[in-house]
């Protein structure tokens, strides 16, 4: 291959390598700027990613839906439609594909189907994960953040824990996790043991 072709190929690849993360930044910034903010009530737990650092996994109150459809498979895409209730997110409905509705939606992943049977008298429910269940934190604060909520779960000092999520056209950005009206990072700082 001639040197000039190699150089052109490298320049194209370099641009693609910059374009991919830049495009990620741009789409997330658009959602933060123009998307509608919702508060999702949640509880954090603390795992680890080998390359991207510590994060807390968020377990949302919105995590299952009563359904008659028994064909759901683990790993299926779940279109979760959200409505606004005084700023807090409320589950409207779920669907296997995009449907016409004037509420916002996000795409989650099906976990398991809790079927109604001889032993389980409750109606069949689909359990799912919301797509914004990771909140990356400073490695020194992720574990204290989890502990802060776990140990004080029954404590009246913790009134509400929610994820602040911006949603636009099915894309969501988790902006922050809030405990008692302040960011979880500041909450951990203030409540150091």
């Amino acid at each position: 291959m001639k040197k000039i072709y190699i150089l052109i190929a490298f320049c194209v690849l370099a641009l693609i390598q910059i374009f991919i993360p830049a495009q990620m930044v741009l789409s997330q910034e658009t959602v933060l700027e123009k998307g509608k903010p919702y508060k999702f009530i949640t509880r954090p737990i603390d795992p680890n990613d080998p390359f991207r650092g510590k994060y807390i996994t968020l377990r949302y109150e919105i995590s299952s839906f009563k359904t008659l459809d028994t064909t759901w498979q683990r790993g299926d895409d779940v279109y979760v439609y959200i409505k606004d209730s005084l700023g807090f997110a409320k589950l409207d409905t779920i669907s296997k594909q995009k449907i016409v509705r004037d509420t916002d939606y996000v795409i989650g992943k099906a976990k398991w189907l809790n079927r109604k049977n001889n032993w389980n008298k409750n109606p069949t429910r689909l359990n799912f994960n919301l797509p914004f269940n990771r909140f990356y934190m400073n490695e020194n604060k992720a574990k204290p953040a989890e502990d802060a909520v776990r140990f004080r779960r029954n404590d009246s000092t913790i009134k509400s824990v929610y994820g602040l999520v911006h949603i636009k056209d099915g894309t969501s950005v988790l902006k922050d996790v809030i405990i008692n009206s302040i960011s979880i990072k500041d909450y951990v700082e203030q409540n150091k043991p």
Partner: peptide
């Protein structure tokens, strides 16, 4: 680079 962008925006 991709890792840090995912981290900044908590990209799923």
């Amino acid at each position: 680079s991709i890792g840090l962008v995912s981290q900044i925006y908590n990209i799923p």
